[in-house]
Simulated scan of single mutants.
Amino acid sequence: MATDLFDRTRVVDVDTHLTEPPDVWTARVPASRHDDVPHIERIDGRDTWMAGGNRIGSPGFYSMAGHDGVMPASVPETYADIAPAMYDAKARLAFMDAEGIDVQVLYPNVGGFGNGYFLNLGDRELVTQCVRAYNDFLTDWCSAAPDRLIAITALPFWDVDLAIEEMQRCLGNGHRAINFCNQPQDYGQPPLAHRHWDPIWAAAQEAGVPVNFHVGGGSMGTQYVDTAGMGWMTHFAKTSSQIFMDNMRCVADLVFGGVCHRFPDLNFISVESGVGWIPGALETFDWQWTNGGVLDEHPEYDLLPSEYFRRQIYGCFWFENQVARDAINLYPDNILFETDYPHPTCQHPGPRTKAQRPRDYAERVFAGLPDEVTVKVLSGTADKLYGLAP
């Protein structure tokens, strides 16, 4: 019987999300704080996350895989409408088996893609409890198959000492990397290029784990307000396309700010930000670096931006076609595969969407690429970064 690419090759999906179950926080903080932490209330027939009397979203909005239609008209209203694979670990493993995916790396929703939402709770002790509760939940969830469900620590970046403490605690519990905010200045913190963050980079380098920057990790609140009157869905699509550039700025901070130079053994991963922009950005960085006097101010820098990238920075893709192939051809050791399951634009279609199953997409985009390159992108590089055993 004929087999497709996913049957022949190990697949590590480096960016997926889990739909947090209703009791993530209420099961892990004192009962007296249940109204203050994220919890589910049924409002106008829709399961809604609430905290401190404020609405903070609904699980259906980021649990769209396989549903007919697009937001906001076709959003699942309650957990009963959401596929169990989105919030139950055993069901997720069964889904992965059916789709031919060996490993998935897991990111949050409720706390924000860079963990910054928790700061809105105000009370720093409560904020700390919520971050730890999420990380403990993730440890428990991934224990169903810790070599297939990969836990990424939500880092409380706003407190360097706490961040290092939480990193070490969670790595001791089996987590494989840390999730850091790509735009910390959005939360009143120094930008990534600032040496303020060096203790965190040093701790991660010593631990031998990568630092992951998920797209949209900064504050996206004002970006999603349609001030031009173009329509909610149109504006959402426009903004979701543009936030890739936040990670371009993130990579520029790491390179031009000397972070890569100071921490040569530390790996950084740009998550859910696509890869088509990478060749153009790196050509631009190299040109400005060479002609803009960078080495006059920093004679210690010993590589070009593109060389720092080759050494220690990685990007992920899930829908691009020719531009993904171009990036792979130029940077075959730095490109990773993802599906973004179960977000609205993930590679897992509903009846009316133009997406497709990940295995069908991969069959097309990898066609004609050398086998050794395909294996690197689908699993080999991710295995090395996350310390996985093939």
Score class of each variant (00 low, 15 high):
Pro210Gly: 03
Asp326Phe: 00
Ala237Lys: 11
Met233Pro: 00
Gly216Glu: 08
Ser379Gly: 08
Gly172Asp: 08
Asp88His: 10
Asn321Met: 15
Gly257Asn: 10
Asp159Ser: 04
Gln129Cys: 08
Met220Thr: 11
Gln185Glu: 15
Met71Thr: 12
Gln129Glu: 15
Gly218Met: 04
Ile164Tyr: 13
Leu295Met: 11
Arg92Met: 08
Arg249Glu: 05
Phe244His: 08
Asp36Leu: 15
Val323Asn: 01
Pro72Leu: 12
His235Glu: 07
Gly172Leu: 07
Leu138Pro: 00
Met245Gln: 10
Ala327Val: 05
Phe157Leu: 15
Glu166Trp: 07
Ala94Met: 07
Ala80Gly: 11
Asp13Asn: 13
Gly368Arg: 08
Gln288His: 13
Ala144Glu: 12
Gln129Ile: 05
Arg352Cys: 01
Ile178Asn: 02
His39Cys: 10
Tyr361Leu: 12
Glu41Cys: 03
Ile101Cys: 02
Asp296Cys: 01
Gly122Asp: 06
Ser74Arg: 10
Ser58Leu: 09
Pro358Tyr: 00
Phe95Pro: 00
Thr153Tyr: 11
Cys260Glu: 02
Ile178Glu: 05
Val131Trp: 14
Thr153Cys: 13
Asn321Leu: 14
Glu300Met: 05
Ile313Gly: 00
Ile150Asp: 06
Trp141Ile: 11
Phe337Asn: 06
Gln347Met: 10
Gln223Phe: 10
Phe317Ala: 01
Ala145Trp: 09
Ala31Glu: 15
Leu388Arg: 08
Thr345Cys: 05
Asp198Leu: 06
Pro332Cys: 07
Asp186Cys: 10
Leu385Arg: 04
Glu297Gly: 12
Pro199Trp: 15
Ala51Trp: 05
Gln129Phe: 03
Val377Ile: 10
His214Phe: 14
Gly292Tyr: 13
Asp4Phe: 05
Glu165Arg: 09
Cys316Leu: 02
Pro279Phe: 04
Asp123Met: 05
Gly293Met: 08
